[in-house]
Design a protein around this nucleic acid. Structure first.
Lengths: 102, 102
DNA sequence: CAAACCGGTTTGTATTACAAACTCAGTGTA
DNA sequence: TACACTGAGTTTGTAATACAAACCGGTTTG
C-alpha cells in the first residue's frame, strides 16, 4: 500500500486552488500583470490581491510595482524558490494521484 | 493556454489533504476501521474523527458502528457518491497537473 | 467639477483545521 | 469493591484561512 501519510505533507501554500492557479499561470507565461492574472484565474480582485501577498511573503513570487504612463502597473513573477516549490508540489501530487489509481 | 479558471473548482471536500488520504485509503481497501485509518493517514484521532464526520455529512462515506466482543468498532466505507467524487477529483487534478507540465 | 473607472488593498465574517481536553466503556489489580 | 488505566472516539477552543464587500488614491470622461 502507498504511503498515505505523505498526503498531509502537501505544501498548503501551493495546494490552495486559487494560489495554484496563480502559480500555474506565472509558470506558463513567466510574467504577468494584475489584470491578466485576474482573467486567467477567475479570482476576484480581493482574493487575487491577498493570495499574491501570501505567495510573496513566502518568497514564491515577487511583485514589482511600476508606472506606465502614470498608470500603476504591477508585475508578478515566480521566483526560483517558487519554481522549486511548484515542482515539488507537482511531484508530490503526481504520487498522490498514482496512489489513487490502484 | 490551459483553463486555469477551472482550478478553483476543485472539490474542496476531497481536496483537503487529510480527507484525501482517508478517501484514498478507503478507495484502496474498500473498508477500514478507525485504528487502521489512523495509522495509514498519520492523522491525529481528533482530526480523523472530524474529517470522517465531514465526509459522512457530505454522503461520501458511511460509518457503521458495531461491537465486537463488547468492544466498539467503527467501520468506514466509501459510498458510491464518494467514489464518484473521488474519480471526479482525480480527473480534475490530473488536468491541473497537465496544465503545470507545459 | 463631479461621476465613473482602474488597479489594487483592507476589513469583516464565516469556515476550517488542528490539537488538547473530555467521555465513557471495559480491563487489570489490590 | 474501589481505583487507576487503556482504548476508541468525540467535543471544544483557538488560531489560521479564504472569501467577498467595502474602501481608496489616482485618472479619465462627461
Amino acid at each position: 500500500m502507498s504511503d498515505f501519510e505523505a498526503f498531509p505533507e502537501l505544501d498548503r501554500l501551493v495546494h490552495e486552488p486559487g494560489r495554484l492557479a496563480i502559480a500555474a499561470v506565472l509558470n506558463a507565461v513567466d510574467q504577468a500583470d494584475f489584470l491578466f492574472l485576474l482573467k486567467q484565474t477567475g479570482l476576484t480582485r480581493g482574493n487575487l490581491s491577498s493570495h499574491t501577498a501570501k505567495l510573496e511573503a513566502a518568497g514564491y513570487i515577487d511583485i514589482e510595482k511600476t508606472f506606465v504612463e502614470k498608470v500603476p502597473r504591477t508585475v508578478y513573477r515566480l521566483t526560483p524558490a517558487g519554481q522549486k516549490a511548484l515542482n515539488r508540489y507537482r511531484r508530490h501530487m503526481r504520487k498522490v494521484l498514482e496512489a489513487l489509481e490502484d
